[in-house]
Design a protein around this nucleic acid. Structure first.
Lengths: 333, 333
DNA sequence: GAGACTTATACTCATATTCAGAATTAGTCA
DNA sequence: TGACTAATTCTGAATATGAGTATAAGTCTC
């Protein structure tokens, strides 16, 4: 083995350690449960306490289960009757000012389902994710809501106290909302939401008494607001999903057992909020050997019948290294 | 705006909501603090309670700070004197059996530093990450430790109760540890550690009383063990860092204000555990306009003096969409 | 001061991969 | 049969990547 140099020669050998002090805030798990229906990314929401705002399903941290994920599956299935497929931890939200009261930790999870069960818990419903982020759906071209947002962003930029600040604001608006001809980056869902929140264009900003640039009356009501910080959690989930879809076959976790290329493409488009090139999409999927033919064909279609495919789950472990960007060398340098 | 179809017509309008029940476990923040020195990825560790095992610095969830990250920075800087640069949340670990006692939540953070301060907290020290994962360092070719691991894995595969299980084990060993000529995927740090843990090749498995395949006497002592689940947290951090380095300029967060191409390359190589191709590495960095010349040259080098570079932080927001893999179309499909 | 040595930096070239679109195939329907 | 729709197959140009080779600019030795 290689000799590992150390950098602690000058340190006293330790005697004891500071015992970690423990603090016990309230902790809950919240779930962004996503499925595809009607070519839209659907999210399971519940009507939150009070009555008008929708929120994400959330539940207790159960001690009975060995893992957090098992606990999550348990109460989601009990509460909504929805069986969860793919599940991954998203982020732990713990900033103050989530709700007006003291700190609550909320461990956010992203879950994908293949089949949208009508939720059996009263008040639960499936909603398109674009109900909350209408500016994120570019499938039919630039969404019209962006005009209003752009106008407000320009006013915010103009209102900068000095040139340096103005440049910063410009930069930020350019890179998040693709102002001034920048390309739209569909992954920046969270950054976009946070910008709107910070400058006061989301109803939440005023509700949370955040110091903002915009007046409450200027608030854009284009996207539906959510309970507490749930819209932020949802934005985090959508961003994660949009990133992941590019290098892991997560879209298949949303498909029924048999599907056509076009159905798969529509699902990916729904998530990415972008239109894709049909022949090239097929090529990408085929080249990774992600699907195999079932031998059957899709019924009732206007044109040529499409082959029904099945996901080859077994390729997952051998998928080539996600991204390459590093110029590895096998020989000398 | 586009008409969003709904899937809740059949649901009763909700009346009330289940109030989220709150459970309050002990919560702590733990930090994987990484820097580069002597061409090694160095991690700040402390000697944990008891005395023999090293652990990650961890501290309380402080209520005084608005964000979790601010709280983390605060106690790390107080405890170790180390100023943190880039910080990101890693994962929240909350599975039982972390320690023998009841559940403790631990929110893991990854932090990068430019300069390795000798830790002022007694018992803190910088250690190469490869002290804990010697099989992860492929810079000088296949690490010798892998021979022993491979042998054990083969025995584990052979011990499968049936053919299906054997195929599964084979598959898993192939994709994680590159058995049988598979290419080494440097990002699978966590999967590799978890496999070793599960089958009982890590001292932690026996300490945690996990039901394993291997006897305690077969345990490989090649990698240093850590307190509680800290080696898992460290593996998570290294995996994240190795993934991120490919599409975000995180390596620069580890560099001093001025550096040469080779220094940068050595840092990336240290993190990735791989040897890179010098001219191509330069090309990748240059093509993204990530650096600019300072006009100065590196002193005291054996060969031709290298230009000193500076990181162009300002390009960060306009970096092109990370990964492309999606065949986007701008026109018809 | 010349030649050896070391690292930096610039180029080259073959091969993959990606992007965009055209062409062809197979159904339904009037 | 011809119009129409969508599926599927191909093509060619443009880029990106992988693996070297060549040249430049210092230090060191004799």
């Amino acid at each position: 083995m290689k000799e590992v140099p150390r950098y602690d020669k000058h340190l006293p050998t330790m005697k004891k350690t500071v015992p970690p002090s423990k603090f016990s805030p309230a902790v809950e798990l919240s779930a962004v449960i996503v499925g595809i229906a009607a070519d839209e990314p659907q999210v399971l929401v519940v009507l939150a306490a009070g009555g008008t705002l929708e929120g994400l399903p959330s539940g207790p941290l159960e001690t009975a289960h060995r893992t957090l994920e098992a606990g999550l599956r348990s109460w989601v299935e009990r509460q909504t009757g929805q069986l969860l497929g793919y599940v991954e931890q998203l982020y732990t939200f713990g900033d103050r000012n989530r709700t007006r009261q003291g700190r609550t930790l909320s461990i956010g999870y992203l879950a994908l389902v293949r089949e949208l069960k009508p939720a059996r818990h009263a008040g639960a419903a499936w909603r398109s994710a674009y109900r909350y982020f209408p500016w994120e759906d570019w499938r039919a071209g630039r969404p019209p809501v962006l005009a209003g947002i752009e106008g407000q962003l320009r006013r915010w930029i103009a209102a900068a106290p000095d040139a340096a600040e103005r440049r910063q604001r410009e930069q930020r608006a350019r890179s998040t909302f693709a102002l001034g001809g920048q390309p739209w980056n569909e992954e920046r869902v969270l950054e976009r939401y946070e910008l709107l929140y910070e400058i006061g264009l989301a109803p939440e900003s005023h509700r949370d008494h955040v110091r903002t640039w915009a007046d409450a009356k200027d608030t854009l009501n284009e996207g539906e607001s959510m309970y507490a910080d749930h819209r932020r959690v949802l934005a985090t989930a959508l961003a994660r999903l949009r990133g992941k879809i590019k290098y892991r076959p997560v879209a298949f976790e949303l498909m029924p057992p048999a599907f056509t290329f076009l159905q798969l493409q529509r699902a990916v488009e729904a998530l990415a909020g972008l239109q894709l090139h049909k022949p090239n999409f097929r090529r990408v999927v085929e080249s990774q050997h992600l699907v195999e033919e079932t031998g059957r064909f899709a019924a009732e279609s206007p044109g040529r019948p499409a082959r029904l495919l099945r996901y080859r789950r077994e390729v997952l472990p051998e998928l080539p290294a996600t991204v390459t960007r590093l110029p590895v060398t096998r020989s000398k340098r």
